[in-house]
Design a protein around this nucleic acid. Structure first.
Lengths: 204, 204
DNA sequence: GTCTATATCGTGATAGAC
DNA sequence: GTCTATCACGATATAGAC
């Protein structure tokens, strides 16, 4: 790779990094093209030599993320889980939580983007159901095994996803008094046994 | 009230109604002042004779809602509940759900408004904790009674609120195959006994 | 490829006749 | 109070020199 291309790649990377920082600070919608270029120490016009729009930039960031995720998860099996097993549910939630929190800027951007389209478009609902598809399949598997689910797997999965993603978005970036593990633990207990807790006496 | 004032009030009401329709269809952020005036059959300039801005209009709508809610809830007692009682939890969720779903346009607007401020501002988290304050107090009451909660009442309450509000926002307006009662029932069961269900065998 | 300067556009908000 | 016409501004996107 020549020095010209190298410099270009450097600028592109600088723009991406700057965008991530800006998204985390100001949110996606509030971040202007000039905010990104300024934070990257480049001129406004340079942006368009690398990305057609803010939306295209987000797609590129998402592609990077998919690449990373693919590398990490490559070759991993994903057999049907039993989500009523405490360890498996906890593990499942932990993976989802760290994925979202570890890529918070992109998550924020996608969230706001889907939101800005308005609720009528139904894009948020679509995203919610797509992103919880694996979860839904696990729930359906449970139901087929004769387990009494709270209700329609699609809705239950969406409800869990809604809770997760909304919390991941809303929770302050660095919460001194609340660790990720603590949050995951609480959510796991809530989703496994509810407010009544594991010691609730069955009705029958 | 004179006819002049009556006509003015009529216009104001028309603007409000038009705004509600537009918010539900296009979302708050996407709705332009001209969308509202056009839908109300008025001129653009008339908007500013009644509201200083789109934000001020939203505040007015919110005030209307508070007025209605106050009328409905006036004189009602609100003693400490036991949220681990199936009926009480169900009732609690039903009230919250119907409040959100019955005033979906305003809810959508508030949601998008808080969101557009970006996550850094922490306004969404603030809203979430404020709106679930009553819930939190009930949970704290439970904890003081010796009940084993899944974790910190503030976080558990926020998690429940996140699930509720996100679903209320994302779920399509008119879902033919899924009634409000069905949704409330599912959420109540999920939050009461979790995925394991009421028949899970206690550890001890 | 990167820069400076600027064209273009959508939208919020106002002025002034009626 | 309502209207038409218009301004003012911020942000996107482009042009052209280097």
């Amino acid at each position: 790779m020549g020095v010209r291309k190298a410099r270009a790649a450097e600028t592109e990377a600088a723009l991406k990094e700057a965008a991530l920082r800006q998204f985390a600070e100001r949110g996606y919608l509030n971040t202007k093209i000039t905010d990104i270029t300024a934070a990257a120490g480049r001129a406004t016009g340079s942006f368009y030599d690398h990305f057609a729009s803010k939306d295209a930039l987000l797609q590129a960031l998402l592609a990077d993320l998919h690449g990373k995720a693919h590398d990490r998860l490559a070759g991993q099996e994903h057999p049907p889980h039993d989500l009523t097993d405490p360890d498996q549910l906890h593990e499942h939630l932990a993976v989802a939580w760290h994925l979202m929190r570890g890529n918070r800027p992109v998550m924020i951007a996608l969230f706001e983007q889907a939101m800005a389209a308005g609720p009528g478009a139904g894009r948020l609902w679509q995203r919610l159901t797509e992103d919880t598809q694996v979860l839904r399949e696990h729930l359906e598997h449970l139901r087929e095994s004769g387990r009494p689910l709270p209700g329609d797997p699609e809705l239950v999965a969406a409800a869990m996803g809604a809770m997760l993603s909304m919390l991941a978005y809303a929770l302050p970036g660095e919460d001194p008094g609340r660790s990720d593990d603590e949050v995951v633990g609480i959510l796991a207990r809530l989703l496994l046994h509810g407010l009544a807790g594991p010691d609730s006496t069955p009705a029958g």
